[in-house]
Design a protein around this nucleic acid. Structure first.
Lengths: 320, 320
DNA sequence: TTTAGTCTGGCAACCGTTTGCAAGGGAGGA
DNA sequence: TCCTCCCTTGCAAACGGTTGCCAGACTAAA
């Protein structure tokens, strides 16, 4: 057993409340006493029990972070950043993966509720209604989803999509394949919104698709068949899958078809050809989400972070 | 405020202890009463407060998972698997990233201690001595590290290294560069142990190196200069960095130099050329570590998981 | 009808901390 | 010298549960 507040109190002959105050309200205890307590605590290796503390204060100094798929390379940098930011604020982070299953997501939130001061929901699969209901029990900050009255960190996907389309248009592409993601994805909707507004371009939509390499691979043949000279993919994984599929058909990227992804994940940077992509500010988003949660407690504020087009090797002039 | 055990008790006119037992020892309460309690609980949306429960029982149903770098693609599948396994056992997982800093690692463990039933330490950077000391306060399961008397999940790196060297030898390679990882890494030591025993091969060592693409990139020129026709790298990231560096020098892989990595991470599978690698059983390790923690509570058992050589495109016959 | 045993549920202490309240002591002002 | 006021500390209740112990109500055996 590790030392408790009582042990410390006994050792230096004061009441437990004095020990408690030494840690949580130092100004209320005499400097002499304080240093005696501190010395004894150090001696015994005492650390306040956060769970017990939470019981009375109502603050756990824990937060939850829920993502659909930890193994999707988009998330680890975000998780890492959130976790580091939280640690700097003396918070611990429960990380949970829902396997893309809304029911798991709901159950996870429910069981986490009492144990955390708030939850970061990254690209949740739950309905708005359900999220709003759950928000009565625990503060949320949602990432890449807009829910009225709820704190959110958004990535400017529309801006990125616009930049990507302009880039392609500038290279002479006219017929462009839009390979979207899972149904109901906010990101996917944003992209399609921009695409719908694009004038002078001939867009052909493919979707919904799995947000993975397999999803891209599966749709590659259709993309090739539709006569597009360029592809804007839901994310880098899908883009890489498309490239994989195209090269299996002996179609060169970017010589015959240009491909742009979203996210800027590591595999894209290492790929041959190196993937042109819209970089998503995952690290900033992770940090910001934590700050928002701690400041606003899930109320109101919406932060939109810029995206940026990173031109690498998977895009080139349209073949004429 | 969410409902507590008292609310439930009041609503159905029983004592709190009866409600408590309904959940934690159902056989001790009359079926009729039980269903009344259950109905009331369901009605009020009551969920036991796990933190409060932990206070008396000493079991938190939480565990910690500490890795050096979440963003290293080797870890996410392991984290995901551990987390899923834990969820199946009704456990929640704190995931923390130490940024490769032993002091952060120690502090993290200390603050986590009271809040978890055990901690999974993945490729820890702490000294054995320190880990043993910390183990007095909280059960550990270490992954890819051997510490006497402590539960461990090991990946058979030696086996993998042997397979890799045999594969290279079979392709006619004689002079092979061994690009190791960070100093003190268990994996690195295992590899070097095997290499030292290899007969008939001419091995040249490079290290220590950062376990990242940058580490590989930095060492590529030296590797090329040493006259080796093949490289065995600490992990896939390093291998990819080496390939990157070599191709910047117009040295073809596998035509001029063969490269093998370790881990089998996604970027390696997507790379051109597709990376030949020793697959590490990350998913199995994550699952196994959780089971070991829950079963043995950190005592004794050591599990060694097989590795496998996956031959893809980055290895070929030695040029003669 | 008595007796012993089994079920069931209440009581109260306890887990480790926090915090409002009050009391004691010393200092300063009148 | 007495009265206030502030500083410091102790006391005890509370947070949301769990659990050993006990007592009452039944049941069944004698």
């Amino acid at each position: 057993m590790t030392a408790t507040i009582k042990d410390v109190a006994r050792v230096c002959g004061v009441h437990v409340s004095t020990v408690s105050r030494t840690f949580s309200a130092p100004h209320l205890v005499n400097p002499t006493t304080r240093s005696r307590v501190l010395a004894a605590a150090d001696d015994l290796g005492y650390r306040p029990n956060r769970a017990a503390r939470a019981l009375t204060t109502g603050r756990t100094f824990n937060m939850g972070l829920i993502v659909a798929d930890i193994a999707n390379p988009f998330f680890p940098p975000l998780i890492k950043a959130a976790q580091a930011q939280a640690r700097g604020r003396d918070y611990h982070v429960f990380v949970a993966d829902t396997d893309e299953d809304p029911r798991v997501e709901e159950e996870l939130i429910r069981t986490l509720t009492k144990q955390v001061d708030g939850v970061l929901l990254c690209s949740p699969r739950l309905s708005n209604k359900m999220i709003e209901r759950l928000a009565e029990d625990v503060p949320f900050v949602v990432v890449n989803r807009r829910i009225k009255g709820m704190a959110a960190v958004l990535m400017n996907v529309a801006q990125g999509a616009r930049l990507a389309l302009e880039h392609l248009a500038g290279l002479g592409h006219r017929r462009i394949a839009l390979v979207s993601g899972p149904i109901g994805s906010w990101t996917s909707n944003e992209m399609q919104g921009v695409a719908a507004d694009a004038t002078g371009l001939d867009l052909v939509f493919f979707g919904p698709n799995q947000p993975t390499e397999a999803g891209g691979l599966a749709v590659a043949a259709d993309v090739a068949a539709c006569g597009a000279t360029a592809v804007l993919a839901y994310n880098d994984l899908v883009a890489l899958g498309v490239i994989e599929g195209l090269s299996a058909m002996e179609i060169g990227v970017p010589d015959q078809i240009s491909v742009i992804g979203f996210d800027d994940i590591l595999p894209g940077r290492l790929n041959r050809p190196k993937l042109t992509t819209v970089a998503m500010p995952a690290v900033a988003a992770g940090r910001m989400a934590v700050d928002l949660l701690l400041q606003s407690g899930g109320e109101g504020a919406t932060v939109t972070l810029d995206t940026a087009l990173i031109v690498r090797e998977s895009t080139g002039r349209a073949q004429t």
